[in-house]
């Protein structure tokens, strides 16, 4: 249960080893927070994230979670609520970038990537949403991406998954708001993280902590979609409308 100054008691992170996800949790944790649940595929790695968050009075639990295993999503969310009470804040941060050289050519690999990044994300959001609707309160933060704003040849399967996810969230989030819960869609640009390690940064590259700062600040307000860094909203309002031949020639890494 949130308190009157917006401090959350229980936080759930889906994608418990995500750099951006853990940065958001680290910033969202306040003196009043008592429980953080990190749900991730690699629980050994999740324990490292947990160790960084642990402090007196804060329980950090690591649970096994597979974004692609949609059949298990609702049970996992319900289990968290049974153990820890109302989920005040859920952050959906899991995704794979995939190797575009493979996902552009291997049908199985392309399907597997979208199964995690789109299908799995939608499934877990609905599972969390069900719980928040039942509670009558709570927030979901979903990490979208500017990659979904205008999908590029550089990584079509990833970009399209984020485009689909973002679209789903816009509609689902508005519906959720009518039921007393709240969704915040975050659209980061290029983020220096484990996911992008070794890649050439795009313009306006940012860091997980900067994304977290924008996200936590937005949670205190009423916006439903934010960009990180915020200037990208302006940049993409122009890029979105560029003629195709110009768009394709842009040096966006």
């Amino acid at each position: 249960m949130n308190n009157a100054v917006g401090e959350v008691q229980t936080i759930l992170l889906l994608g418990g080893t995500s750099d951006i996800g853990t940065a958001i949790v680290a910033r969202a944790v306040q003196p009043y927070t008592r429980t953080v649940v990190l749900a991730c595929r690699d629980t050994a790695k999740g324990e490292h994230s947990a160790a960084a968050l642990r402090r007196d009075g804060l329980t950090v639990e690591v649970v096994a979670f597979d974004g692609a295993d949609t059949a298990g999503h609702q049970a996992l969310i319900d289990g968290v609520a049974t153990r820890h009470g109302d989920i005040d804040l859920a952050v959906v941060a899991f995704a794979a970038l995939g190797d575009p050289d493979i996902t552009r050519q291997d049908a199985q690999a392309a399907a597997a990537l979208t199964q995690v990044d789109f299908v799995g994300a939608v499934s877990s959001i609905v599972a969390v949403g069900n719980r928040l609707r039942e509670q009558g309160h709570g927030s979901i933060v979903v990490l979208s991406s500017v990659a979904g704003e205008r999908v590029r040849a550089a990584n079509p399967a990833y970009g399209a998954s984020k485009a689909g996810l973002d679209g789903f969230c816009q509609g689902y989030g508005d519906w959720l708001a009518e039921q007393g819960a709240r969704m915040l869609v975050v659209r980061p640009g290029f983020v220096h993280s484990a996911m992008t390690d070794g890649m050439k940064p795009a313009p306006f590259a940012t860091t997980p902590d900067k994304v977290a700062e924008v996200t936590v600040k937005a949670l205190r307000g009423r916006r439903r979609t934010v960009w990180a860094p915020p200037v990208l909203q302006l940049v993409f309002s122009a890029l979105r409308h560029l003629p195709g031949p110009v768009w394709r020639r842009l040096p966006l890494s």
Partner: peptide
């Protein structure tokens, strides 16, 4: 009540959290 849940006042809201 929200108060009971937030402060874990009753046995049913005290949950199974370690703390």
């Amino acid at each position: 009540s929200d108060l009971a849940r937030r402060l874990r006042l009753t046995v049913s809201t005290a949950g199974t959290s370690a703390s």
